[in-house]
Structures are given as structure tokens and as C-alpha cells.
Design a protein around this nucleic acid. Structure first.
Lengths: 118, 118
DNA sequence: TTGACGGGTAGGAATACTCCTACCTATTGT
DNA sequence: ACAATAGGTAGGAGTATTCCTACCCGTCAA
């Protein structure tokens, strides 16, 4: 029985983000598009390895490549990150419940303090 | 030279999410805390494998375990998902720029249509 | 035209991941 | 007490990931 392969768009997205180097590449591209050689100077890694990371990012839809002569410029592609924000939405409820519970706790402590000072 | 290990909190978070089964477990826990055996019935996988996935989720801070007798209940822990939302924030700018560019394009086409109809 | 440069691909080594079965501990009901 | 149940751990097999060096093609400058 073959193992399940990670081939959905969601898998490629999360898979691409599950590596610190690739997240650092994205972070670097926040300042604008860059060539492969430029990107590679920021990492303690051979250039072909950076190329492979860029391929994974591209397959995940997180970066786009545009050719200018013999240069290729890589730029952040925002759509999958927006999708990630949408994926998070159902979990926001838990976050708000947690905040509400903390607020209630603070109120209780405040009420107790008032009692004591009377 | 040893390879870099994924040991930061961020790595554990993204690493935990980079697996469809684990994302499905989180999704299942949206409806409330569940025991391991309960969770396992939803997956075509042996129970110990589910246990291992839960361990990865726990190490990533995404679920919390509470013991009741010989049962363990796993529940969604929202903090890392909130952190993920914060991580996304710098990229929102790109998303809005893309929307603005699309809006401008629509305006241009609309203006062109008006011209033609005159 | 041809050498230098940008950058992708191939194949291999080391490690990590994901599943399994077998086994173990702790708790509970009888 | 003891059998049954919940669920974690160990070790191993198969696959995937991540790095490397060597090599390749396309583009530009001389």
C-alpha cells in the first residue's frame, strides 16, 4: 500500500511554510522582488539548494517568477497567504473565548480586591 | 556537518500543520474535546499513529491534553493559531495591493466601455 | 563567436517523517 | 485481585526532505 502523497494545494502551501529557510526567503521578499543569486547571498547554503527552496515556494503558489534576460526575479504571491488567513477563521472563536475567560478572571480579581479594601 | 533541526516554536507550529491528518484532527476538535480512541475512529489509521500525530500537535502547542481517569481529552489550543495570524500580518499589504491593482483594472475597462458606447 | 555569468537539473548521502505491529503502564469494573 | 480498557512507547520499514557537487542550457559582453 503506497503512502499518501502530499499533493493538494493546501499540502503544498503548509509544506512550503514548514521550513525556516523558506519562511526566511518569503520574509526577504517582503522588501521586493530579487534574483536567485541575490537571495542566495543571504543564506549559508549553496545556490542550487536555494533554487530548490524557490521551486517548493513556487509550487506552493507563494512566489512568482518573472524572467528578464538571464535573470529571474522572484516575488511574493499573496493569494495563498490570504487563503491561510481564511483557513484560520474557524479557530478565531477559540481565541475569543480564551480572551473572554481571561477578562472574566481579571474582573473577579478586581472585585475581590475591592472587597478586601473595604 | 549535522543538518539543522526544526526545533523552534515556529518550526514546531508549521511542522505540525504540514500534514493533512493533523489538520483534520484540529478540524475535528473544533466541535469540542475528544478522547484518543474517539479521534482514531475518524481516521483510516492505527490508533498508535493517531497518538503520534497528537504528540506532534501537542509539541506545537496546538492542542492541550487533560486527563480524566484513564481517558485523555484533547482540545484545540488557540494561541499558536493566533500567532500564525500575526505572522501573516506583514503579508497583508501584498494582498491589498493586489486588490487595488484589480480594482484599477476594472475601472480602466469600465472607462474604455464608456468611451466605446459614446 | 565565445567566454563568463545566471540559474536550473541530476543523482546521491544523511536525516526526518509517517506508518505499522508488538508491547507496556495505568485505571477501572466485577 | 484481575481482566478489560485507554492510550503511550519501541523499533523498524518505506518514503520524503534537504543538503551537496557536478553538470547543463540560455543570455550577454567582448
Amino acid at each position: 500500500m503506497p503512502q499518501r502523497t502530499k499533493d493538494s494545494a493546501t499540502d503544498r502551501l503548509f509544506g512550503a511554510l514548514a521550513n525556516p529557510t523558506r519562511r526566511d526567503v518569503l520574509d526577504l521578499l517582503l522588501s521586493g522582488p530579487r534574483t536567485v543569486a541575490d537571495i542566495a547571498t543571504h543564506f549559508d547554503m549553496a545556490r542550487p539548494s536555494v533554487s530548490e527552496h524557490l521551486k517548493v515556494l513556487k509550487d506552493g503558489g507563494l512566489v512568482a517568477e518573472t524572467r528578464h534576460g538571464r535573470f529571474r526575479h522572484y516575488a511574493v504571491e499573496p493569494q495563498p497567504l490570504h487563503d491561510l488567513g481564511e483557513w484560520l477563521r474557524p479557530y478565531e472563536r477559540f481565541w475569543r473565548e480564551r480572551l473572554a475567560a481571561m477578562a472574566e478572571l481579571v474582573d473577579q480579581i478586581a472585585a475581590q480586591d475591592t472587597e478586601e479594601s473595604e
